[in-house]
Simulated assay, not measured.
Amino acid sequence: MFSSKKTKNEKLSQQKIDAAIKRLERFSKLTDSSIRIPFTQFKVGVDAIIGLVPVIGDAIGVLLSSYVLFEAHRVGASKAIKLKMIVNIIIDFFGGLIPIFGDFFDAFFKANTRNTTLLKDYLIKHA
């Protein structure tokens, strides 16, 4: 009886993890690749658009990116994965601060997509 209850709890945890991954995939698409550049196949997201506002836009981008880190903590990601995510967020922030280059950097680096992929790979490996 105890083992079946444990299996039910594990299944519930897996459902929560799957729901978190779906949320993160939607969030990453919105922030990193929701807007197609006309006449190209290249997509940017809200993060790159917000990043056009010097300093403040990049600070808002960090706040948005912290959501992925929060979800990683909620699903029990390791400290190493969360540290890699923090490094990606820091790179995205400081890269975005560079005048003109930073706007292009934001469009190409896509920290939220990188962090979502890190978390998905971690969860697949440890599931």
Rank of each mutant, 00 (worst) to 15 (best):
E71M: 06
A48V: 07
A77F: 00
Y122G: 00
S4C: 03
G61F: 03
D121K: 13
I56C: 03
I37N: 12
G96S: 01
K125Y: 14
K82T: 11
L97Q: 02
I17C: 08
A80N: 13
L24G: 00
V44A: 09
G57T: 09
K22I: 12
V68S: 04
F42N: 08
L64E: 06
L97K: 04
S66G: 10
G76V: 05
F27Y: 07
Y67V: 04
V68R: 01
L69R: 02
F27W: 04
I90V: 14
K16Q: 10
T40H: 07
T117F: 01
I21A: 06
A59M: 14
K120E: 12
N112W: 05
Q41V: 09
K84D: 12
G51I: 06
V46N: 00
Y67L: 04
A59V: 11
P38G: 12
V44P: 13
D18T: 10
A77Q: 00
G51N: 12
I35D: 03
I81K: 01
S28F: 04
I35L: 11
K5R: 15
N112I: 09
S3A: 09
K82Y: 10
L119Q: 00
A48R: 04
T7K: 11
T40Q: 11
F93G: 04
T40G: 07
V46M: 02
N88H: 10
S66T: 14
D92C: 13
Q15T: 09
D103C: 14
